[in-house]
Write a protein that binds this DNA or RNA. Sequence first.
DNA 1: CACTTTCTACCTTCCAGTAGGAAGGAAATC
DNA 2: GATTTCCTTCCTACTGGAAGGTAGAAAGTG
Lengths: 196, 196
Amino acid sequence: MSNLKTTPDDILACARALVTSGGYNSFSYADIAEVVGIRKASIHHHFPSKVDLVRTLVARYREDAAVGLAALEQNVQNPLEVLRAYADHWAMCIEDASRPFCVCALLASELPTLPPEVALEVKAFFRFISSWLTSIMERGSKEGSLNLESDPRIEAEAFMASVHGAMLSARAYGTPDVFATILAPTMARLSPANAH
Amino acid sequence: MSNLKTTPDDILACARALVTSGGYNSFSYADIAEVVGIRKASIHHHFPSKVDLVRTLVARYREDAAVGLAALEQNVQNPLEVLRAYADHWAMCIEDASRPFCVCALLASELPTLPPEVALEVKAFFRFISSWLTSIMERGSKEGSLNLESDPRIEAEAFMASVHGAMLSARAYGTPDVFATILAPTMARLSPANAH
DNA sequence: CACTTTCTACCTTCCAGTAGGAAGGAAATC
DNA sequence: GATTTCCTTCCTACTGGAAGGTAGAAAGTG
């Protein structure tokens, strides 16, 4: 097994943790250097500027998400269960506190002050998740495995907003389980058992 | 009419605009000084430290919200209409781009890296809005003017999460109207006309 | 006069980023 | 097999600027 983490990977992982905890402006190259065990200048060798670093980070975050969501759709057929797995994924991340927040949800709040290159990547992530959720909603609607009350596209946006808002609340209250509590009514409503 | 804004008020207003656009770490005293037309050191006279400034800002933000929400409840009796007015308030703020984001929703995303004093105020704001929304939900549930599918407390949390998430999406897409679009299904579901 | 407000000037610390050299490995050349 | 060359990585040392904050004097106000 190839456990060999390269230095750029270590830097990106560390940067992701720092971004998720406080956003773009809350960390410095010095912070990363201390955690990774390397000098500041060495980070500049791998990522010439902070913009390069975070742009790469967000782009890779989106790629990883694409792979993960594709795998999820392979393993789980029922659209309702796919959405549940998606929500559960975040619930577990929040409880683990290892990846307690969606990188892009956090960066989106800072969008007006973000460097343009990073802002573009963040916006692309939103469009990606939105279109993926829309496709799930459409499939569920056709199959009858999802109980939609609105257009699939709107349901997808509303679902994403609930997930992001629930992340915020979980962070504000400091109690991870409110995430699942907030999502529960949404999941219940989407279940065809509750169709009216 | 007393249009006379005091200097501390100007500073707070400017700080609020800067916080809503990029969070705690995205602005400096120098930024405020430039906008208000004052020197950096003069700001320190009114707010000795940045923590003092933002703590005061959030505390006053909550007081203003308390006054505004109390007035809203005076003017509008129907709980459903209260919620609609609450959502419309944010929709207008987002379209005006003057106050395009809830200060505390934004600061909540930075909570782990926020100075403790500020973090406390932000958490207090969440509890305040949550309990206010809960009281509205309870009243609407008793009166039959709101169609709740879950516990009023949970409905309140879910509603707040939707609002916050919709703010994020509106910012990410750069199209303010998606806020109203996302909230529409939630509002429709709460209407007693849609009871099942 | 006392008090508040604002100013200039300065401090320390941190920031992103740069210059240039040392260490190491991998070929390619002798 | 030893030496030279090249490239990657990481280092020390530094720069210019911006950060939050301070000291103390000047200007305004009751």
